[in-house]
Design a protein around this nucleic acid. Sequence first.
DNA 1: AAGTGGTCTAGACCACCAT
DNA 2: TGGTGGTCTAGACCACTTC
Lengths: 239, 239
Amino acid sequence: MVVYRELSDSLRGAIERGEFKEGEQMPTEAEICERYGVSRHTVRQAFQSLVADGLVYRVPGRGTFVTRLSRRGKYLRSIGTLEEMMSWTGTEMEVMQPVEITEDVEHARRLELPSAEVATLRVRRMYGGRPFVMTQIYLTPEAGERLREKNLPASGPGTVIGTLEEILPSPIVGASQELTAIPSPRFISGLIDCKPGEPLLYVERLYYLEDGTPVELAISYYNPKRYSYRLELRRGGAH
Amino acid sequence: MVVYRELSDSLRGAIERGEFKEGEQMPTEAEICERYGVSRHTVRQAFQSLVADGLVYRVPGRGTFVTRLSRRGKYLRSIGTLEEMMSWTGTEMEVMQPVEITEDVEHARRLELPSAEVATLRVRRMYGGRPFVMTQIYLTPEAGERLREKNLPASGPGTVIGTLEEILPSPIVGASQELTAIPSPRFISGLIDCKPGEPLLYVERLYYLEDGTPVELAISYYNPKRYSYRLELRRGGAH
DNA sequence: AAGTGGTCTAGACCACCAT
DNA sequence: TGGTGGTCTAGACCACTTC
């Protein structure tokens, strides 16, 4: 484990245990250098991570302060980063239709595939035993094949994209999302406990690798009575 | 202007002008150090900003590469950062109800105010002359007073939060958002060209200062036929 | 005047990738 | 084996805040 990561974890833990209270000033860089026996650069790297997570904020000439609790961890799920999306704790997945290969020109094009061949599967997600989202997933045929060999369990925790991440040779680095509201299609409503025509939260999400190659297109239909999309925006750190 | 910022702007410009093509390898850190006469640390700071914006990606042992164009600037509006939200180019604001002070226990509580007194105003946003969103805004009485003195124009480009930013003594550093789908309330539908009961995209957004103090609560109703919320997720740089 | 975080330099070692 | 980015050290100067 690298030093700055250990240091930031240590500081993060101290904040979460309440050893530094909200609004309070944190130790200065110089103090931490001495106490942990590391260079100032390493301390700054550690703080950078805490600032990015919104746990602390820094004011030149004054110091480093713990962000007020009311602005943190307020929500059970705040999906503002890719990591959070890939390990969705507290919910369960149920595979409704296992991976199969089909011809689908439109979704093959979305995945920038050369032919019309795509892999597809359908999953449902439950919270407290009740379904709140139905997702149709499209994959490149290669990814679909690997997922089939892996033998995805019919139900349980975890996510398809998280499973895929373990299988693929290179990491998933991003996703572009589009959210809107639509009337519930008839074939969806029964699966997530709502009536046809009622408003649904519709989300399209395209995951891609570091070179920009798309690997998964996920189209989700959320029951808005059981789920709302929460998101934290922050002013960029390096701008 | 600081050096690393000049350097990152220079590299950003070169990428946008197509001097480094998509997928192509960028100059190495050592090359840039020599060419610009700066230290390696400064070059790394500059690259950090480009990575955060998704313009380039870096692979240990191999090099730095320009992200494929299809993963960037694909959308007219991709609201993934606070900056983008505060200067919403291409759209126009229309004030439907100017700032007034009222008593409103619920929204005063959301703004963590000591009394029930809040300032409120209602604005509509147009794209190509057609309305696509109605927003009810709640402010602290102080912020509302300042906004009223400023004499917000009845219509034009810009945003309320952007105007507020110029007025306030300390900067807005973040916002927490919640998105869901609702049936259109009767009092909204006529204002954004849709029918009562049709699905709307409903967004609540609470802006706050660096110490966590809330300053503005914006509740927006979007016509989903004219707007969808686009968002880019990336794997964190400092995690 | 002393202390804070922000920036910058010069140098070092490492794991990893390509050849 | 040489080159890449990732990490770390030790030291410096600066603008700004606080006293």
